[in-house]
């Protein structure tokens, strides 16, 4: 099977520090891949390189290739903005736009891009909110501020906002780290449903979460890829001792 997304010898530098070293990975379509590792191992850095968020950090330098459907997103001819429309991202802390209503937040990807058509907007908002199982909770107050929602609801709203622009890949950067267990469970169930339609890459420091939600798991340590395999294998029979040490809690 041809992978949806592929990293080839990815290297990322910040100034003089070498944060990610020669990482190569493949993400098959309609799967969930978890990237795990101790803090500072470069897992978020890898994730952010997949939709070119490092372009905004002047000191960051990314080399190697990131292939989306076999096209390198770091090719000189490629527009980072177009990349981000195909590869969406959900952040660690829910970040709805504070000045916008729930409705406007969901549709913000369109509104900010200036494409507006009232009836299509209504449809997109409804289907996106249903997609993240938030519709029933907020359908009566779509015009109220997004800031009034609970943390878990805000994060689901952010996911709705991301799916609304119909990306092909969704990147999640520790999406549950600020949430309580019940809200976390809802997001995890959601991730499982999302993979029917999207390719999901999730960074997490929570190994149980990785084991629960992902099909594949990559273990990163000090900027290097130590092991990449089917999740079940990583958690039951890792090939590398460093992986085993980490998942059994001997370090990190």
């Amino acid at each position: 099977m041809n992978p949806k997304l592929k990293l080839e010898q990815l290297n990322i530098h910040f100034g003089s520090s070498h944060a990610v070293k020669d990482v190569s990975l493949e993400f098959p379509a309609n799967t969930v891949t978890a990237i795990i590792g101790p803090s500072g191992c470069g897992k978020s850095t890898v994730l952010r390189s997949i939709n070119r968020m490092h372009d905004l950090t002047p000191s960051a330098r990314v080399t190697g290739r990131v292939l989306l459907d076999d096209a390198d997103i770091y090719d000189r001819k490629v527009d980072p903005v177009a990349v981000r429309r195909r590869i969406g991202m959900v952040f660690q802390k829910a970040n709805p736009f504070p000045a916008m209503s729930i409705y406007d937040n969901v549709i913000s990807g369109y509104k900010l891009n200036g494409r507006v058509n009232k009836s299509t907007m209504d449809e997109i908002v409804e289907s996106s909110l249903k997609r993240v199982a938030l519709w029933d909770e907020v359908k009566d107050r779509l015009k109220s501020s997004a800031m009034a929602l609970s943390g878990g609801q805000q994060q689901r709203l952010c996911i709705a906002r991301t799916v609304a622009v119909q990306p092909e890949v969704i990147l999640m950067d520790e999406p549950c780290s600020a949430l309580d267990p019940i809200a976390t469970l809802k997001i995890e169930e959601l991730i499982d449903e999302l993979k029917e339609q999207y390719t999901v890459v999730i960074v997490t420091h929570n190994m149980q979460q990785a084991a629960r939600v992902s099909d594949f798991t990559a273990f990163l340590y000090l900027g290097e890829l130590i092991e990449f395999d089917v999740t079940k294998k990583i958690f039951t029979n890792p090939a590398q001792t460093r992986t085993e040490d980490y998942i059994t809690g001997r370090f990190g």
Binding site: L68, A71, I73, D75, K77, V78, D79, V81, A82, V83, R85, R86, Q166, E168, Q197
Partner: peptide, 16 residues
């Protein structure tokens, strides 16, 4: 896949 329109990544308008 769905009815989504695949955006060409080499869309120069936005860069402009």
């Amino acid at each position: 896949m769905s009815d989504r329109v695949s955006v060409a990544m080499t869309d120069r308008r936005v860069i402009k």
